[in-house]
Amino acid sequence: MTETSSDPLRLEIAAAAARLIADGGLDYASAKRKAARQVLGDGAPKGSMPDNDEVDEALREHLDLFDDDHASRVTRRRQAAAALMRRLAAFHPYLTGAVWKGIVAEHAPIHLQLFHDNPKDVEIHLLNDGVRFDVETTPHFRDRSRDEVEAIVFWWRDEPVMLSLYEQDDLRGALKAGAAGAERGDLPSLLARIEAAAQASGARR
């Protein structure tokens, strides 16, 4: 939670952004801008824009209330992510994004960040595994002013996947926890989250 998370205006924009992410498939930045226009018109006061943590909280609440498949989708995509990370272990995979956080709208892919110095090795590995994929680009997770990195997108076990490809040096500093905790995790960290979620679910029954 941020110091301004009780600001009703920020919370209203966060809730509107959450609906746009869940129902329209928008990314966070686009959803926040569109939500601010919906709530305030073109003149948004300074400081009224919610941060990503506030949108995360609103999105989790929205999905828990209106998406009956949310909990099972989180479990399903985390399990698929774990299996895929095992297959891609040579490329130092880390899970990030919606599936790592456990806030998974229907369109949200399993997002793995791979840290390996030759992207072609990853492509060859996938081709040898019979995976058909498309190649796109995505902003660098640490510095959006830098060149975009290669992103490989495909479906695996009926789940959407995006692999973003980084050099091994990019892993240094990547595991520092932010205000909301770690932004990514390796396979043991993911398995710990799966186990914790299973225990919490069992305790609620």
Rank of each mutant, 00 (worst) to 15 (best):
D53L: 13
G130T: 10
D68R: 14
W100S: 02
G130S: 09
Y94F: 06
Q168C: 05
D51W: 02
E150I: 10
A31I: 05
L88N: 02
D51P: 01
Y28V: 01
L65W: 12
M1W: 00
I110W: 00
A179P: 11
G25R: 07
Q38D: 14
V74D: 11
K101R: 15
F154K: 13
T2M: 06
P160Y: 09
F154E: 11
P45S: 14
P188F: 13
R33I: 05
A22T: 07
L63R: 04
D67C: 04
H107K: 10
I194M: 15
S145P: 00
R10V: 13
L88P: 02
E159R: 06
V39T: 08
E167P: 03
P188V: 11
L9N: 12
E106H: 14
R144S: 10
A89C: 05
R144V: 04
D68Y: 06
S6Q: 15
H107M: 02
R132S: 13
A36L: 12
G178L: 03
D186V: 00
H140G: 01
Y166N: 14
A179C: 05
R86S: 14
Q113F: 09
I124K: 13
S189I: 04
K176D: 10
N52D: 15
E54Q: 15
A35L: 00
H70S: 10
P8Y: 14
D158S: 13
A197C: 10
D129I: 06
H107I: 03
N128S: 08
G202D: 12
Q113C: 09
V74E: 12
L95G: 09
V161D: 07
A71T: 10
G41A: 04
A177L: 01
L191D: 15
F66K: 14
A16L: 05
F154R: 12
L126H: 06
G97S: 11
H92I: 04
R86V: 14
I194G: 13
V122Q: 02
R132Y: 07
P139T: 10
E106P: 03
R77F: 00
V135Q: 03
V153R: 15
T137A: 02
A203E: 13
A105L: 03
D170W: 05
L88D: 05
L26H: 15
L20M: 06
P50L: 08
D117L: 04
A108C: 11
Q38L: 13
L163M: 08
G25S: 09
K32H: 02
G102W: 04
S201D: 06
T4M: 10
S164E: 09
T75G: 01
R157L: 00
A14I: 03
A89H: 11
A180P: 00
